[in-house]
């Protein structure tokens, strides 16, 4: 269970939000909304533990995330609006390297299977610099296919995807929620997630 309590965010001179709190249980999705600059990404970075909140506390299973540190990060999977893939490496190498750095066991067959699911079959061994923007995004999304960690934090996951891929990703998130996972997501696109309880939080 992820809880946020009385969070306050100050960027520069501006206070983006204060007194913000929520509680997210297993199988629930938190849908962050708000106009540009309302602090959605700042809130996500707080939930990741990258940005310390001005006030307030974030707890994971009742423990403050600052105290949990590595144990919290081991339960967390983040997809930012940067793809975090290396142009010089192939999609397969990118996926395997990301899994090794996150301490996950991902076999080569699983990685190839994940790339097939995101529609990159046959391009596993092509350096990522030759892929299109949307295809690079798919390489980043392929990380989620075999992802077993319970908390997903997704910043604009639907950007640069075609309609079929949007449906596929919505299905993937539904599956994660059905397995008892949690997800926090920002998006400007209206997307329907079939499974789980969807909570909304509007900033600004």
């Amino acid at each position: 269970m992820l809880e946020a309590d009385n969070l306050e965010c100050v960027r520069g001179e501006r206070r983006l939000f204060a007194g913000l709190g929520f509680r997210l249980a297993a199988g629930e999705l938190l849908y962050l909304q708000g106009r540009n600059g309302s602090g959605k990404t700042s809130l996500l970075r707080m939930l990741l533990g990258l940005l310390p909140p001005e006030h307030g506390e974030i707890r994971w299973h009742g423990q403050p995330i600052r105290k949990l540190a590595d144990d919290y990060r081991a339960d967390l999977c983040y997809l930012g609006h940067l793809n975090a893939i290396k142009e010089e490496l192939t999609p397969l190498e990118n996926l395997l390297a990301a899994a090794r750095l996150a301490d996950e066991d991902l076999s080569e067959d699983d990685a190839i299977d994940a790339l097939e699911q995101v529609g990159l079959a046959g391009r596993e061994d092509l350096a990522c610099k030759y892929l299109s923007q949307g295809q690079k995004r798919r390489v980043a999304l392929a990380r989620l296919v075999k992802e077993k960690r319970p908390l997903w934090i997704l910043d604009e996951p639907f950007v640069a995807l075609d309609i079929a891929a949007v449906d596929w990703l919505a299905g993937l998130i539904s599956g994660h929620l059905q397995r008892g996972g949690l997800a926090v997501m920002t998006t400007h696109q209206p997307v329907s997630i079939a499974a789980g309880t969807v909570r909304e939080l509007r900033l600004g």
Binding site: L48, G49, L50, D70, D71, R73, A74, L76, Y78, G80, H81, L82, N83, A84, I85, K86, E87, A98, L101, A102, D103
Partner: peptide, 11 residues
């Protein structure tokens, strides 16, 4: 390219 964030979030 965002990899540094992922490295910082590694357990």
């Amino acid at each position: 390219d965002g990899t540094l964030e992922q490295l910082a979030l590694a357990p």
